[in-house]
Write a protein that binds this DNA or RNA. Structure first.
Lengths: 183, 183
DNA sequence: CGCAGAAACGGGGCGGCCCCCCGTTTGTCG
DNA sequence: CGACAAACGGGGGGCCGCCCCGTTTCTGCG
């Protein structure tokens, strides 16, 4: 993953740092040329290390996705299956909505390591919740991730306050995944 | 809105037709130059008639948005308030998810006529549903529209079948807007 | 230590896009 | 039918992503 040669490794790290700042500042569609400029390298170097925008996004957010997966794993071991899933989904949504660009690295696409990681972590929680009848059987982990990323991206592009709106919308959607109590 | 001079009106209509086809084919971020090319006009003519991509989107989808508003109005007069809202939201979601680009013309922005139209139409249904205690009081029409457009846009970018996934996700989210029956 | 080959670099070109200027054409109305 | 306003569109500027390929830099071996 990370290059062998010292100069390449240095450029790689500077690109990651510049990209992280740019994505936080301007969102997932920040200019790649500008990122290369900020990193002090030519644009060709950026494209050699990261053949696509998606690859750069994934590299930037890989660590944070890993942390979210770790959190899922801990919740799966401890709490009740039902609350564990909703707690994680809310935490995931809040974090994704407050981290510009992160949602874009969770969309399903070919060889998207971040997406696969989150799916595997979330599926563990979902499977347990389903076994405890805490969630509707037809709900899939892809459904849940799509909801979280869709809401996050929608709120990300909206002008004013984003955190509270994302929380409210996610709350509605998450309540909808429970089995309906009455008829 | 529509130009006075005959040649301008002809170009306007050809641009709308070309844009409608392009948006359906490639989504809301289709190339404006290509649309002008397909319409047989210079790109300057496109920009004179439609100063922004949003303006073109709105013009293309204005009629369909009007039809959706009309449908809301009819539902508001007839059925029970609670079901009327959910029926309309499901119909709206199904239609938006199956019409590439339409979701982009519903996002809130300055002077977005389509957005205002939908908001006013939906608010009528929501107000009645709220008065009948069929919906949580804190839910706003902006929340609902954001959910519908967010899910539609997410599904729009996904590869395979979109209709069924949009329907399932919307079903979950819409169920979440009802007052919670138990605790 | 030094060198040869491999690995990495980046300037710069290509094509595309959006946006707009401004000289030219065309419709309209008296 | 003529003049004037309205509309047109070629083309240029700026930015972008992408990639070729001549040049530089690192590294491991003799």
């Amino acid at each position: 993953m990370r290059p062998r040669r010292a100069d390449a490794r240095r450029n790689y790290d500077q690109l990651i740092a510049a990209a992280s700042a740019a994505f936080a500042r301007e969102g997932a569609d920040a200019s790649l040329e500008e990122i290369a400029r900020q990193a002090g390298v030519g644009s060709a170097t950026l494209h050699r290390h990261f053949p696509s925008r998606q690859a750069l996004l994934n590299a930037v957010f890989h660590g944070r996705v890993e942390a979210l997966c770790q959190q899922a794993h801990e919740l799966a071991e401890g709490a009740d299956p039902g609350p564990a899933l909703t707690i994680w989904l809310r935490a995931l949504g809040a974090y994704v909505a407050s981290t510009r660009g992160l949602a874009s690295s969770l969309v399903p696409s070919t060889d998207n390591e971040c997406h696969h990681m989150i799916v595997r972590a979330g599926d563990e929680l979902l499977t347990r919740a389903r076994a405890a009848d805490a969630v509707r059987p037809e709900v899939s982990i892809d459904d849940l991730l799509t909801l979280v990323t869709a809401i996050s991206m929608a709120v990300e592009h909206s002008p004013g306050e984003n955190g509270s709106e994302a929380e409210r919308l996610l709350g509605l959607a998450i309540d909808g995944i429970h089995p309906r109590p009455a008829g």
